[in-house]
Nucleic acid binder design. Structure first.
Lengths: 188, 188
DNA sequence: TGTTAAGTGTACTGAACGGTTTATATTGAA
DNA sequence: TTCAATATAAACCGTTCAGTACACTTAACA
């Protein structure tokens, strides 16, 4: 197997294990075994476990936003509908077979120091989600896209937490109903 | 030192360390050292680390809700105002010196299996918060206390996540402004 | 075909993990 | 004052941790 595909494979395997079991609970040895590689190879590609975690979070950010925007475009056929579709995309995610909450919220929980690069990359992901929803708001002609995106993102976070901690997948629909008020207000 | 106070002391010390550094990242030895006790004593009071974690979460639930209701009553002098004061209480918490997000959200992130007793106790805490806000809603004469509590709790979770992951403490005020819409609608 | 880079399994490091054991000291109540 | 419970420090258990060292194999390429 060539170099980049091997590196990608390690990151993908690590992503699954870190997401399901957490970062500190997942050992390098488990990742090595699951990826069916040697430890030497792993440390040829990543300087340390933290370095691997950062690579995993960078991949997760790209993968998640790619899937998310795809779902939003699937559920919302007009710019205005896409703002609501954000919550349909959430609901689909919640009901998927491997939902363990938001990986970046989980990462921030394990690495509470806001200066830690792991915490920082989590904040960056949230910022990119904010930017994405703001773009949707602009396209829909919202009066104050920043404000609307801030509001919708807050509802999104709330839904994610309720879906994960309490298993309340319907939080996506509750959040969508709430969101309609702010969307209508911003577009009206 | 008598038995119950010693046991309490261990739980309080463990609470601080678990909250700040996470559960899997905090070793028994660190707790033992910080509490200035022997390992034997620790294992006389707790069967295992998981047992200690559960005791810590039970204490956190009681302490947190006690402080929270106190703050709500401080910021809100009428039943209707107390519904809004929930977010003033959040803001005060966010700006405190030791804020590392919601310990139960963090716990659910590290113990993703919803059947795990640690995850279950986190869901129970959220349920008690829901019950508390519903009580406030009833006292304020809300039309549909369950629905209003569900809405406010979703906003609360969203604010907590933004405050912790992104360091956006103002999320409490943003959530409060959003909450007013639902409160006014329910009380109107 | 010989060189080089990247792969492999295995063994190893020192430290930390959760948890137990032992032998001793302290302490409160009968 | 004695007894029993509970505390203590420290050594110890086997396991796992992140990370390294080594000897060997594979495969692409000049």
């Amino acid at each position: 197997m060539a170099q980049p595909s091997k590196k990608n494979h390690i990151v993908e395997v690590a992503l699954c294990l870190f997401y399901k079991h957490g970062f500190n609970a997942t050992g390098i040895e488990k990742i090595r075994a699951e990826a069916a590689i040697s430890k030497k190879t792993l440390y040829n590609h990543f300087a340390s476990k933290d370095d691997l975690i950062l690579a995993v979070l960078r991949l997760r950010d790209v993968q998640f936003r790619r899937n998310f925007t795809r779902a939003v475009e699937h559920f919302g056929k007009t710019p205005a509908k896409r703002l609501e579709a954000v919550f349909d995309a959430l609901e689909e995610w919640f009901n998927g077979k491997d939902f363990y909450g938001c990986m970046f919220i989980n990462a921030s929980g394990e690495f509470s120091d806001p200066c830690s690069p792991i915490h920082s990359i989590s904040a960056e992901h949230k910022r990119r989600m904010y930017d994405y929803v703001m773009k949707l708001a602009k396209e829909a002609g919202a009066k104050n896209p920043q404000k609307l995106s801030q509001q919708l993102n807050l509802l999104m976070e709330g839904a994610i937490v309720q879906a994960h901690v309490s298993g309340y997948k319907l939080a996506a629909r509750r959040a969508k109903e709430m969101a309609k008020l702010f969307i209508n207000d911003a577009l009206g």
